[in-house]
């Protein structure tokens, strides 16, 4: 189980012909927590989308190795099958599809893949869902709403974490799961992330602020500027960034790279 890993090697990617990722290398093992911190517009979401195979993002060079398999060319669902997951910074609405139906669908798909298993009944699933929603302090009526439609920022983030917990992937990229949350919501979301980590998921935590790292402890911190990792270190690096901001690192390229 612990040999599961994602190796990002010199990843370069562009959107609409514009190069955003300019050579990113990272090595994430299952169970580890990597924080990626960087200013707005530095390409953090681009990295997340490229890892997940968004069709608008083109890999120009470099490779993605998931458990030693090159996944550069795989579609998003093939990547999901192999254990990747993205909690979106801005999750999209799916009008008319209830949270409950949506979650049961993706859960059953996952189960069917995992062991060719039978789908769970509506009743079984609702029992599970109720429990998980309770953990995230979500009202029961939430399950009947349409996916991300008219959700507040905090509700969207919770639904992303709910999916993380229900799907239990091997490796999850969490793209700013903390943005726009008040302190209570931040705690609830962090607890969800920590439960997932306890179950063994590897995490790439993309964040703009160090705040969430007080609740979710990273093993590694990477500073991301202008499409590159310019510095890597331990948790103490987050503290340093909080004090000093990003400016002192601009124009710097990580020596390890």
């Amino acid at each position: 189980m612990n040999n599961k890993s994602l190796k990002i090697d010199d990843l370069q990617a562009s959107i609409s012909g514009k190069k955003i990722l300019k050579g990113v290398s990272l090595n994430i093992k299952k169970g580890e927590v990597h924080a990626i911190m960087g200013p707005n517009g530095s390409g953090k979401s681009t990295l997340a989308y490229t890892l997940m195979g968004h069709p608008s993002y083109k890999i120009e060079d470099g490779s993605l190795l998931l458990n030693d398999e090159n996944i550069n060319m795989l579609s998003p669902d093939e990547r999901a099958k192999r254990g990747l997951f993205l909690a979106f910074q801005y999750p999209v609405a799916i009008p008319g599809v209830t949270v409950m139906n949506f979650l049961r669908n993706i859960y059953n798909k996952k189960i069917a893949l995992a062991n060719g298993g039978k789908p769970v009944s509506i009743f079984q699933f609702n029992t599970l869902l109720k429990e998980r929603m309770g953990f995230l302090k979500m009202e029961e009526s939430f399950a009947k709403r349409y996916v991300n439609e008219g959700f507040s920022g905090g509700e969207k983030k919770r639904l992303e974490i709910l999916q993380l917990e229900i799907l239990n992937p091997d490796l999850a990229v969490l793209d700013e799961p903390d943005s726009g949350l008040d302190i209570d919501a931040l705690k609830v979301v962090s607890e969800g992330v920590n439960r997932a980590i306890e179950k063994g998921v590897g995490v790439i935590m993309v964040t703009h602020y160090a705040r969430i790292l007080n609740y979710v402890k990273p093993n590694f911190v990477h500073v991301f500027i202008d499409g590159r990792v310019v510095k890597s270190g331990g948790p103490e690096l987050a503290k340093e960034l909080e004090d000093k901001g990003y400016d002192w690192l601009k124009g710097k390229v990580n020596s390890k790279h």
Partner: peptide, 17 residues
């Protein structure tokens, strides 16, 4: 993209929407 990231195939994702 969102739905495929959750493991649905492209046709399943379109059907859901």
């Amino acid at each position: 993209f969102y739905l495929m990231n959750r493991g649905l195939s492209e046709s399943e994702a379109a059907a859901m929407v």
